Amino acid sequence: MSDSLWRIAAVTRHNAILRLRDPGPFLTYLVMPMVVMLALQPIYQRAIPGGTTQIATGMLVIFSVLALSIVGTATLTERSWHTWDRLRATRASTTELLLGKALPVYAVLLLQQSILLLYGITVLGVRPSGACWLIAVAIAAWGATLLAIGAALAAVVRSHGELSAISDISALVLTTLGGAFIPTTMFPHWLQAVAPVSPGYWGLTMLQAALRGDVPGTLAPAVILLLVGAAAAAFACWRLARGWGRATML
């Protein structure tokens, strides 16, 4: 057990250094939503009841999903550098390698969401009535789900171009379908029926419920998201363990 923790800590330390040396993507997905929130807040306030909460949580969900590229890059870079096979040749298991790579990125996702939420509260005027622990649970569950989906995506794509295209298109489609731009209650009936297919729907529902202080409304989507995340994480471990994460890049 101690040897396993030591190996995870070593991989985590290495990947934390890599993230600190390349802060560009993190800053991009942090500054851009701040600008969009501030610019669109007056329109949302006039057009949608609870418009401030909608724009704050909607942009948080959109840009945290766009940050999937950060998650995928953490694994895909090892393949483009031809170092993934070397890592797999060590005593560290695939699960240990993924955990070591995931923890620094998870910290980045939690930091991004926390800063954006704090920005919405202090600058936009969002007034949360929920307890801090409930909001923390929502952020932690959403970040964990994104982390697992990003790892699964990195195990499938073969180039950074594919990763960028899939993550960007999927992010916009899934978050739009989930109600990040406008509430799903304003969708056509057929689109309302499809919306729950998107993880973004449950992420947005969970965050807004946490801000309202709705415990059941927060925990139920959190369980659904964690189940999705567990399935994605299991797929990523299985695929990489079978050698499909080899360093060869097409």
Rank of each mutant, 00 (worst) to 15 (best):
residue 241 A to G: 14
residue 184 T to C: 02
residue 48 I to M: 08
residue 76 L to R: 05
residue 42 P to N: 06
residue 225 L to G: 08
residue 220 A to L: 13
residue 238 W to A: 14
residue 28 T to G: 14
residue 101 K to Y: 04
residue 103 L to N: 12
residue 152 A to H: 01
residue 246 R to D: 10
residue 48 I to K: 01
residue 84 W to E: 06
residue 103 L to M: 15
residue 117 L to W: 13
residue 171 A to W: 15
residue 166 I to Q: 08
residue 36 V to S: 10
residue 246 R to I: 08
residue 224 I to L: 15
residue 26 F to N: 13
residue 87 L to I: 06
residue 149 I to G: 00
residue 45 Q to E: 12
residue 250 L to M: 09
residue 232 A to M: 12
residue 30 L to E: 01
residue 51 G to N: 13
residue 191 L to C: 10
residue 97 L to F: 01
residue 37 M to I: 01
residue 135 I to C: 11
residue 74 A to S: 14
residue 88 R to V: 15
residue 157 V to N: 05
residue 13 R to S: 10
residue 242 R to C: 02
residue 152 A to P: 01
residue 206 M to K: 12
residue 159 S to P: 11
residue 73 T to Y: 11
residue 78 E to W: 04
residue 44 Y to M: 04
residue 187 F to H: 08
residue 25 P to W: 03
residue 32 M to K: 09
residue 221 P to M: 05
residue 34 M to H: 05
residue 39 A to M: 09
residue 203 G to E: 07
residue 33 P to Y: 04
residue 140 A to W: 07
residue 145 T to K: 04
residue 103 L to V: 07
residue 5 L to P: 10
residue 199 P to H: 10
residue 89 A to W: 08
residue 22 D to F: 15
residue 209 A to G: 08
residue 81 W to M: 12
residue 49 P to C: 08
residue 104 P to I: 15
residue 58 G to W: 10
residue 86 R to P: 00
residue 197 V to M: 05
residue 155 A to W: 01
residue 115 I to E: 06
residue 102 A to H: 06
residue 135 I to A: 07
residue 71 V to P: 05
residue 52 T to N: 09
residue 243 G to Y: 04
residue 130 G to E: 12
residue 78 E to A: 08
residue 230 A to H: 10
residue 122 T to H: 11
residue 94 T to W: 02
residue 119 Y to R: 11
residue 62 I to L: 08
residue 235 F to C: 14
residue 231 A to V: 04
residue 69 S to A: 12
residue 45 Q to P: 00
residue 122 T to S: 14
residue 246 R to K: 06
residue 100 G to M: 13
residue 97 L to S: 01
residue 99 L to A: 13
residue 60 L to I: 12
residue 103 L to R: 00
residue 186 M to C: 02
residue 212 R to Q: 14
residue 36 V to C: 03
residue 13 R to K: 12
residue 215 V to I: 14
residue 41 Q to T: 10
residue 71 V to W: 07
residue 24 G to D: 04
residue 244 W to C: 02
residue 130 G to N: 07
residue 65 V to D: 07
residue 193 A to Y: 12
residue 85 D to W: 03
residue 68 L to C: 10
residue 56 A to H: 06
residue 3 D to C: 11
residue 245 G to A: 06
residue 19 R to M: 11
residue 217 G to V: 15
residue 204 L to W: 07
residue 18 L to P: 02
